[in-house]
Nucleic acid binder design. Structure first.
Lengths: 167, 167
DNA sequence: GTTTTTACGTCAGTCATGTTGACTTATTTC
DNA sequence: GAAATAAGTCAACATGACTGACGTAAAAAC
């Protein structure tokens, strides 16, 4: 108890600090997803559809296998969601040219429009938080979030270059 | 377009930066929840049970209404999960003393033990990320996460006091 | 050139977690 | 005493995940 030893490195981790980290993730994620979820509900879609639309928009021409690796869900789960999105004209697929077994996925115009609307709410939230926090805090955020995620996906986030400015 | 006005503040936000923020949240949360989910699966519980156990452990004597405000789910959803946890001896309730309509929730020893096991995986993940990132980055993480969540719950995270050290 | 692996799809059944809506009981507040 | 609040309950339903089994086409390996 009274674990208050002041070292030269201010980073000693109390129970309290770690608990706070857990809760920050819970609350931030809860609120981060609330707006898109509400929009999706109105058109009869769910969060799973948002994720697929988001990542197909992010990686146009992605294959089903690539999507599965990102989402970490089963083929059967993805299949239903993807099927609904294609049936409703948000996503299209075409056979791969190099490998004709593959289905390369892209967003239709309708899909891009929905993607934009959904992610705009999230982008605005991130932008607001980033602006209020400042560039240095954003770098810290980035570093910690990368440390929280599994190592395997960190390569998706290349080291940022400042805007030619200081440093 | 080309919204690139470089002010004295180096924080100008490109599409790319915001997109990256969205993805950091997705990947970090995905991996943050994976380990407890796997443990819970083995004993026939799910993430919803973890959340209840976590917050009852965090706020011993919390009422059902308080829990509902934190989790933002319906009473009926909570009721099922809470019922299972009580039936299986993880959570207990006793009537409130000041207001006898209330049910004050606490973890049993068994519940505390499970809470510890589940959250240990998450605490270890946070601790690893914090240590690798350093104190300054952690402060930035905290600031940005607070900015992402709705204002209403920020009061749950009082401004940290350094350990009597620098600053 | 046959075998094996891979990419994708599908059918069927199940489970966990959330929702809405209606209604009840006990207790506190006005 | 009436109204509001805290909690619980029943019923029906939607979503998003899972396992397991099986099928097809194409590419890769032998």
């Amino acid at each position: 108890m009274t674990d208050v030893k002041t070292g030269p490195n201010p980073l000693f981790l109390r129970e309290e600090d770690l608990r706070q980290g857990i809760e920050l993730l819970f609350y931030a994620y809860r609120d981060f997803t609330a707006e898109p979820d509400a929009m999706l509900g109105k058109i009869g879609l769910g969060r799973a559809h948002h994720r697929v639309i988001y990542f197909v928009g992010r990686y146009p021409g992605a294959t089903v296998t690539e999507l599965l690796a990102i989402l970490r869900i089963t083929k059967q789960s993805l299949s239903r969601v993807l099927g609904e999105l294609m049936e409703q004209g948000y996503v299209e697929q075409r056979p791969g040219t190099k490998d004709r077994r593959q289905r390369l996925l892209t967003l239709t115009d309708k899909g891009q429009e929905l993607e934009r609307q959904l992610s705009d709410a999230q982008r605005a939230r991130i932008a607001r938080a980033y602006r209020a926090a400042g560039a240095e805090a954003v770098e810290g955020f980035r570093t910690v979030m990368l440390g929280i995620m599994d190592e395997i996906d960190r390569a998706k986030f290349p080291t940022p270059r400042g805007p030619g400015g200081k440093r």
